[in-house]
Amino acid sequence: LGSALLAASGKRLRVWAHGGHAAARHLAQVLGLSLFRELRQMRRPLTGPELPEPVVPAGVRIRTFVPGQDDTAWLAVNAAAFAHHPEQGSLTQRDLDDRKAESWFDPAGFFLAFKNDELVGFHWTKVHAEEQLGEVYVVGVAPGRQGGGLGKALTTTGLRHLAAAGLPTAMLYVDADNKAAVSVYERLGFTTYETDLMYRTES
Rank of each mutant, 00 (worst) to 15 (best):
residue 73 A to T: 08
residue 55 V to C: 10
residue 17 A to C: 14
residue 30 V to L: 14
residue 16 W to T: 01
residue 44 R to W: 00
residue 98 D to R: 15
residue 84 H to D: 11
residue 24 A to K: 01
residue 16 W to I: 08
residue 53 E to H: 12
residue 61 R to V: 11
residue 90 S to K: 10
residue 21 H to S: 15
residue 32 G to C: 06
residue 83 A to C: 10
residue 24 A to D: 14
residue 64 T to A: 04
residue 76 A to S: 12
residue 56 V to F: 02
residue 105 F to P: 06
residue 60 V to Q: 03
residue 31 L to S: 07
residue 103 S to Y: 07
residue 103 S to G: 08
residue 25 R to H: 15
residue 41 Q to Y: 05
residue 29 Q to R: 14
residue 23 A to C: 10
residue 46 L to Y: 03
residue 99 R to P: 03
residue 12 R to L: 01
residue 45 P to V: 00
residue 52 P to Y: 01
residue 53 E to W: 09
residue 64 T to K: 09
residue 64 T to Y: 10
residue 99 R to F: 03
residue 16 W to A: 09
residue 60 V to W: 02
residue 83 A to H: 13
residue 49 P to T: 01
residue 72 T to F: 09
residue 103 S to K: 11
residue 99 R to H: 03
residue 58 A to Q: 15
residue 60 V to L: 06
residue 68 G to C: 06
residue 26 H to Y: 11
residue 51 L to F: 00
residue 83 A to G: 07
residue 57 P to C: 04
residue 55 V to G: 08
residue 19 G to W: 05
residue 46 L to F: 01
residue 78 N to V: 03
residue 54 P to I: 01
residue 44 R to G: 00
residue 22 A to V: 15
residue 14 R to S: 14
residue 51 L to T: 00
residue 80 A to T: 04
residue 27 L to T: 09
residue 81 A to V: 04
residue 13 L to E: 01
residue 50 E to C: 09
residue 21 H to D: 15
residue 97 D to C: 08
residue 46 L to Q: 03
residue 84 H to R: 09
residue 33 L to G: 08
residue 28 A to F: 01
residue 66 V to E: 12
residue 87 E to T: 11
residue 96 L to C: 09
residue 62 I to H: 05
residue 41 Q to M: 13
residue 67 P to A: 05
residue 50 E to T: 09
residue 43 R to H: 11
residue 63 R to G: 01
residue 48 G to M: 02
residue 99 R to M: 13
residue 22 A to D: 15
residue 91 L to P: 06
residue 61 R to D: 05
residue 74 W to K: 07
residue 32 G to Q: 06
residue 62 I to R: 05
residue 41 Q to L: 12
residue 20 G to Q: 06
residue 68 G to P: 08
residue 104 W to M: 04
residue 94 R to Q: 14
residue 100 K to F: 00
residue 92 T to G: 06
residue 32 G to A: 06
residue 46 L to G: 01
residue 100 K to M: 15
